[in-house]
């Protein structure tokens, strides 16, 4: 198949890529752009390790082609912090110990952030459903739920000065 020149907007930066149209978004992000925070954990779209946000919604980046993501705003884990300051979800994950090996964490954070974007005050069950597509083999999820609850409760709200 003929290669194509595409532009992907990842974390606010336009990247021009010359790629095979069959390239998955996760491959474009990791192998072409070199942002390796996003992981892969399966070949069946089952684990969520590859989750990114597209226009603020969570998407498994192994389930879409890079070309399909053209024209959208893609956010990866590297794009969560702003000016060297961690996002509330990241702070909450640190405080609650909501990760262990860390391999699911990028995807988990993106699902958490997307959930909070859509529903700033989720119930516990909504949180669980929101991260149901993300497997974590280490934590047993409850610390992750606590972290998301803490963010929803406003614990990490910016103090505007």
């Amino acid at each position: 198949m003929e290669k194509r020149l595409i532009t992907l907007n990842v974390n606010g930066i336009d990247y021009e890529l010359y790629i095979n149209p069959k390239t998955l978004l996760v491959e474009a992000i990791r192998d072409y752009i070199g942002l390796t925070g996003t992981k892969r954990g399966c070949d069946t779209v089952s684990c969520g390790a590859c989750t990114v946000m597209i226009d603020g919604m969570s998407v498994k980046s192994c389930a879409v082609l890079a070309v399909q993501a053209e024209g959208y705003k893609i956010t990866t884990v590297e794009g969560l912090e702003k000016d060297g300051k961690l996002a509330p979800v990241q702070e909450a994950f640190l405080d609650e110990g909501a990760y262990q090996c860390g391999f699911c964490t990028a995807g988990m954070l993106m699902s958490a952030q997307a959930l909070l974007n859509e529903n700033p005050n989720p119930t516990e069950w909504e949180i669980r459903e929101g991260i149901e597509g993300n497997i974590c083999r280490c934590t047993g999820y409850n610390s992750i739920v606590r972290a998301i609850q803490a963010v929803a409760k406003g614990k990490y709200m910016e103090v505007k000065s």
Binding site: G37, V77, E78, L86
Partner: peptide, 17 residues
């Protein structure tokens, strides 16, 4: 807090993968 935490929640941790 886990001392490797910042690397893990920011995607900076480099795994063999």
């Amino acid at each position: 807090r886990n001392i490797d935490g910042v690397a893990k929640v920011t995607g900076r941790a480099v795994y063999t993968f």
